[in-house]
């Protein structure tokens, strides 16, 4: 019986260390990130990005993004537009305080990576694909969001841009 204890412990340690090897790296979002949107009018940025980023180029299967953006942190460069954007007519920051993205899978592409997942925006959940690159500990990506798909001021389709180009630049540290 005693003879089998040490091989068993060795086996357990080996299996456990194998799991730690496959575990994705957890990244912390640095302060100098930018989440910008451009629709001509409006254009601006969000400053309230939070979340957990698990990403390992060698282990994409275990990589995952779970990030939120504080809607009230919107900045268009104009105080009146900021107030307007946060109102119930547009983003309704009181009822929908965050924009939430959760990835379901991350795959390698020719130009970098793509994260497929759910974007929860203005109370509407939609599956989106977020293409991105990861170079020198910086995540960078661009994708488009059509506000009509998320029920944002659908009564006025021609009031401001419908399609907004979202550009992400997120430096991270371990």
């Amino acid at each position: 019986m005693k003879k089998s204890i040490f091989p068993a412990i060795t086996l357990v340690i080996l299996i456990a260390s194998a799991f730690t090897f496959f575990q994705s790296v957890e990244w912390k979002i640095s302060d100098n990130y930018s989440v910008k949107f451009d629709g001509g009018d409006p254009s601006g940025e969000f400053t309230g990005l939070k979340g957990s980023i698990k990403f390992d180029e060698k282990n994409l299967a275990d990589s995952k993004f779970d990030c939120t953006v504080d809607v009230a942190s919107i900045n268009t460069g104009n105080g009146m537009k900021n107030t307007h954007a946060k109102s119930d007519k547009w983003l309704d920051a009181t009822k929908y305080p965050v924009i939430h993205f959760t990835s379901k899978s991350i795959n390698k592409t020719e130009s970098g990576y793509e994260a497929k997942g759910t974007l929860d925006f203005h109370g509407v959940q939609k599956e989106i694909t977020l293409p991105f690159t990861f170079v020198n500990n910086v995540f960078a990506g661009t994708f488009e969001v059509n506000r009509m798909d998320y029920g944002i001021n659908t009564a006025e389709p021609n009031h401001g841009a419908q399609v907004l180009k979202v550009s992400l630049n997120v430096p991270v540290t371990k």
Partner: peptide, 12 residues
């Protein structure tokens, strides 16, 4: 109505 550069804090 002017939009300030995004680096400017508290545009309101």
């Amino acid at each position: 109505s002017i939009s300030l550069p995004l680096t400017v804090k508290n545009p309101e």
